[in-house]
Amino acid sequence: QIFVKTLTGKTITLEVEPSDTIENVKAKIQDKEGIPPDQQRLIFAGKQLEDGRTLSDYNIQKESTLHLVL
Rank of each mutant, 00 (worst) to 15 (best):
I22R: 00
D38H: 15
T65N: 04
I43K: 06
L7M: 14
T21Y: 08
I2D: 01
D51V: 06
L14H: 00
I22E: 00
L55G: 00
G34L: 05
S56H: 13
I35W: 12
G34R: 06
K10G: 08
R53N: 09
I22N: 01
K47R: 11
L68P: 00
G52R: 09
L66R: 01
L49G: 00
Y58L: 06
E63Y: 13
G34T: 03
T6V: 10
N59E: 08
S56Q: 13
L68I: 05
N24E: 12
K62P: 15
I60P: 01
I22F: 03
D57K: 02
G9R: 04
S19P: 03
R41I: 14
Q61P: 13
A27Q: 12
K26R: 05
A45T: 05
Y58M: 04
K10H: 14
H67L: 12
L70K: 07
K28V: 04
K10P: 05
Q40L: 06
P36D: 07
V4T: 01
L14E: 00
L42R: 00
F3H: 11
T54W: 04
G9C: 08
Q39A: 09
Q40Y: 13
I35A: 04
V69T: 09
G34K: 06
V25Y: 01
H67T: 13
K32P: 02
D38Y: 11
P37E: 07
E17D: 12
I60N: 01
S19F: 12
Q1Y: 15
G46L: 03
K32G: 04
G52T: 10
E23C: 14
I29Y: 02
Q48I: 13
D57R: 02
A27F: 13
V16D: 00
T54I: 06
Y58Q: 04
L7K: 11
Q1A: 08
I60Q: 01
R53C: 12
V69I: 13
K5Q: 12
F3A: 04
T11I: 14
Q40N: 03
D51F: 04
I35H: 08
D38L: 09
I43W: 15
N24V: 14
T6Y: 13
E17Q: 10
Q1L: 15
D20L: 05
K26V: 02
K26S: 02
E17T: 10
I12W: 05
I22T: 04
P36K: 07
S19I: 07
T11A: 05
D57S: 11
P37Q: 11
N24G: 09
E33C: 15
A27W: 10
K32V: 11
T21H: 04
H67S: 07
V16R: 02
D51T: 05
E63I: 03
L66F: 04
T13V: 14
T13I: 13
L7C: 15
D57L: 03
V25G: 00
K5W: 05
S19M: 11
L70N: 09
K5P: 01
L14M: 04
K32N: 05
G46Y: 04
D31G: 09
K5G: 04
